[in-house]
Design a protein around this nucleic acid. Structure first.
Lengths: 221, 221
DNA sequence: AAGGATTTGTAATAGCTGGAACAATTGGCG
DNA sequence: CGCCAATTGTTCCAGCTATTACAAATCCTT
């Protein structure tokens, strides 16, 4: 069966909330409970999970530990992922220092920059490498994921290089939409875009009554 | 006419690419061109825009400057938005120093933290305030948007406080799903979730032939 | 052991979203 | 001046997504 991309996109949320429940000591959880925590309908959660198997028990719900294990397997989170970081400016350094990656199995194992003042420097236990070393290092370390934290003007070029090195997934912090060949996935992280999609509704609230009527407000987690 | 939320979510991308085109000196742009840049079909762009009016000229395309102006108006980006930041730890400081907000009209005008060692400190021209000052300052400065950069365990509590202060939009950097009443919008920024939705496809490529067949690969910008 | 309360997995359905297609319109060119 | 190429705005339709509804299964209580 074909799994819709939107379903895959929700699985990590399930993983995250299941971890919290496990930490809290809960052994069982129902789709209703999960739905409340994630502001989704129970049916959607059950249907999403049903793409991958039957993990629950009727009348009881899901075993937190077992569902978590299953989802980690499905998302391939039961292994370490080596990541290359490109760009060690202000943003890149913050990413290197972010403590949220390692506990989830994401390890930044190489850092690149084309600024000669940055190259050779030690950061978070890594020596910053010149871009010219990318093909060799990415191949040697078998890196499939890259994080791009370079200025917008350089992002497309950097992504092109990464793709030609065999990188298949890119997390793009540059505020620009980059194009990739089929088979290479890009996820953008741009707080400004997120803010701008919220001001639409804020503007309506401040605007005329006519505008108010035109926009419907609904919460989103 | 009711505008779907998914359409509103794409408008900021149009704004971003239109800015780039304007910087590049282009005066006109077609939906085909925009579609190529954003890896979308021209029809979708035309349809999205048609929710708000008729901005193009048949046979010619859209005036970059005029479409940009229109979209900025629709998204309420033609004004300054005052933002409160909660949490000035490692992540909060990085956000304060991020130079991408100001040029888009987003100004962080208050910073809060409940850590007594942080309160009173000057950061990026702001004095870090205690949480107890939030109701007063948010009201006085008429703040409607907040950025949350506190540990996951405190995020829900902080959001509750923000909501009770009248904040209507929250950009949540904490790796947790927070619940809000209807009318309050939350957008989460969690790079780990983005990575985890990509490993699903990477795992399939490394896995068995059976898994390979099960997952379909398609690029996404 | 029987009955009731609960909850899953899925089938059916309603609603939404994206894309194809095309008439209408515009500007350029000979 | 008339034709041609280009491109929009919109209608229609196919496909996708979410929700409702319910039979089947499980556990708890008495």
């Amino acid at each position: 069966m074909e799994v819709p991309e939107v379903v895959v996109g929700r699985l990590p949320q399930y993983v995250r909330v299941l971890r919290d429940l496990q930490k809290k000591g809960d052994r069982l959880v129902s789709s209703k409970e999960l739905g409340d925590l994630l502001q989704m309908t129970p049916a959607q959660i059950r249907k999403d999970l049903s793409y991958f198997g039957r993990f629950g028990k009727q009348g009881r719900g899901y075993s937190v530990a077992s569902l978590l294990d299953q989802l980690k397997g499905i998302l391939a989170l039961d292994r370490e992922w080596r990541i290359a970081l490109v760009g060690v400016g202000r943003l890149g350094r913050a990413i290197l220092g972010y403590p949220g990656f390692a506990p989830e199995g994401f390890q930044i194992v190489a850092a690149f920059d084309d600024d000669q003042r940055q190259v050779g420097q030690a950061l978070a236990g890594l020596i910053v490498q010149p871009m010219s070393e990318m093909p060799r290092i990415v191949t040697e370390k078998d890196i499939r994921i890259a994080i791009v934290a370079v200025p917008a003007a350089q992002a497309q070029n950097v992504v092109n290089q990464l793709v030609s090195c065999g990188v298949k997934s890119v997390l793009n912090y540059a505020p620009v939409s980059v194009q990739t060949p089929e088979g290479v996935r890009v996820r953008g992280i741009d707080p400004v875009l997120s803010l701008q999609s919220m001001t639409y509704y804020l503007g309506a609230e401040l605007g005329s009554a006519q505008q108010k009527r035109a926009h419907r407000i609904g919460a989103r987690a």
